[in-house]
Amino acid sequence: MRIAVDAMGGDFAPEEIIKGTLMSAETSPDVQLILVGRKERIEPFLAGSLPKNVSIFEASEVIEMDEHPANAVRKKKDSSIVVATRLVKQGEADAVVSAGSTGAQMAAALLGLGRIKGIERPAIVTILPTSEGGKLILDVGANMDATPAQLCQYALMGSIYATKILGISNPRVGLLNVGSEEGKGNELTQKAYPLLKEAPINFIGNVEGRDVPYGRADVVVCDGFAGNILLKTAEGLAGVLFDQIKEKITSNMVRKLGALAIKPGLKEIARMMDYAEYGGAPLLGVNGISIICHGSSKSKAILNAIRVARECVQVRLIDQIRQDLLK
């Protein structure tokens, strides 16, 4: 198995990307890892010689976060994300992992890999930590104006991913809405509801935003506009809560003593809420494995993202989606 890693993508590239790749090389010696990027920027962060299962593939350009994704992908054909995706297209890699511009990665995947037959638009899936473990939300930004049929496709792909990668048997699929009753919502959700009821999935009906953190659905389906707002709100709220907890429990000596007693529990919660534990998730619907990581990913997140890529390849995720679409 060969996995291409975009060494130049992300807020902490290339150092943290390289660290995570080398960690993966040590824990998964059977996987060939390809660092894609500028060799002169990669080599200074390598501790001596490369492990036998790590190589460098030269890519002279980098797509910056503030560049227009589609235009940059078309103009910078030797950028790290375009080259890494091309390796997958040409069969020289089985998956690509990147923490760079999400828009650029999506454009590179669409232009370079194309869509799976039967999928109109790809969906960015993310794993949101909940009280019941990690749950899927899709779409969180690939397609702002989805159709009812596309939401149904998201549900199918999300259900397959939850089963094959997260190990959830018969995952519960919910439609994000403003109320739990059938008939609630806007035109999109009202038209999507009957399609989801007839789809070969475990559809449990509408779920409200407050249901998501409690893990009442294993897969939450929505358009990219609503999904992105839900994700960013959850991230911001979690950050504020942890900051407030830290401030209040250390505000005086008595509370500091009490904080020592609850510190192990707080660490467990922090670990559960840490996106690095999940690493990344695939852009579902494209004809190849393209794992999207958080822009601020460090070595631990990259290590886990490579693990996710490996699992997607091992279970033949693309073939699974194709087969279910033919049913």
Score class of each variant (00 low, 15 high):
Val54Thr: 05
Val54Leu: 03
Val54Gly: 00
Val54Met: 06
Ser55Gly: 03
Ser55Glu: 15
Ser55Phe: 10
Ser55Leu: 10
Ser55Gln: 12
Ile56Glu: 03
Ile56Phe: 12
Ile56Leu: 11
Ile56Trp: 08
Phe57His: 15
Phe57Met: 09
Phe57Leu: 11
Glu58Tyr: 08
Glu58Met: 07
Ala59Trp: 07
Ala59Leu: 12
Ala59Cys: 14
Ser60Cys: 07
Ser60Arg: 15
Ser60Gly: 09
Glu61Ser: 12
Glu61Asn: 10
Glu61Asp: 15
Glu61Trp: 02
Glu61Val: 14
Val62Trp: 02
Val62Leu: 07
Val62Lys: 01
Ile63Ala: 15
Ile63Tyr: 10
Ile63Arg: 03
Glu64Thr: 13
Glu64Leu: 12
Glu64Tyr: 07
Glu64Pro: 06
Glu64Cys: 03
Glu64Ala: 14
Met65Gly: 13
Met65Pro: 08
Met65Trp: 05
Met65Thr: 14
Asp66Pro: 08
Asp66Ala: 10
Asp66Val: 13
Asp66Ser: 14
Asp66Phe: 08
Asp66Gln: 14
Asp66Tyr: 07
Glu67Lys: 10
Glu67Ser: 13
Glu67Asp: 14
Glu67Gln: 11
Glu67His: 12
His68Asn: 08
His68Val: 13
Pro69Gly: 02
Pro69Arg: 12
Pro69Val: 05
Pro69Phe: 09
Pro69Ser: 07
Ala70Glu: 13
Ala70Phe: 05
Ala70Arg: 07
Ala70Met: 09
Asn71His: 10
Asn71Ile: 14
Asn71Asp: 09
Asn71Glu: 15
Asn71Trp: 08
Asn71Pro: 00
Ala72Ser: 14
Ala72Pro: 08
Ala72His: 02
Val73Asp: 00
Val73Tyr: 00
Val73Ala: 01
Val73Thr: 00
Arg74Ser: 10
Arg74Leu: 10
Arg74His: 05
Arg74Ala: 12
Arg74Lys: 13
Arg74Val: 12
Lys75Arg: 13
Lys75Tyr: 06
Lys76Ile: 05
Lys76Pro: 07
Lys77Val: 15
Lys77Met: 13
Asp78Gly: 01
Asp78Trp: 01
Asp78Pro: 06
Asp78His: 04
Asp78Tyr: 02
Ser79Leu: 06
Ser79Ala: 15
Ser79Glu: 03
Ser79Gly: 12
Ser80Lys: 06
Ser80Ile: 11
Ser80Trp: 05
Ile81His: 09
Val82Gln: 02
Val82Ala: 11
Val83Met: 05
Val83His: 05
Val83Ser: 13
Val83Ala: 04
Val83Gly: 06
Ala84Tyr: 01
Ala84Trp: 00
Thr85Ser: 02
Thr85Arg: 00
Thr85Ile: 03
Thr85Trp: 00
Thr85Lys: 00
Thr85Gln: 00
Thr85Ala: 02
Thr85His: 02
Arg86Phe: 00
Arg86Pro: 01
Arg86Asn: 12
Arg86Cys: 04
Leu87Glu: 04
Lys89Gly: 11
Gln90Glu: 14
Gln90Lys: 02
Gln90Gly: 01
Gln90Trp: 01
Gln90Asp: 14
Gly91Val: 06
Gly91Trp: 01
Gly91Asp: 05
Gly91Tyr: 05
Glu92Asn: 11
Glu92Thr: 09
Glu92Gln: 15
Glu92Met: 09
Glu92Asp: 09
Ala93Lys: 02
Ala93Met: 15
Ala93Thr: 11
Ala93Gly: 09
Ala93Pro: 06
Asp94Ile: 03
Asp94Ser: 15
Asp94Ala: 11
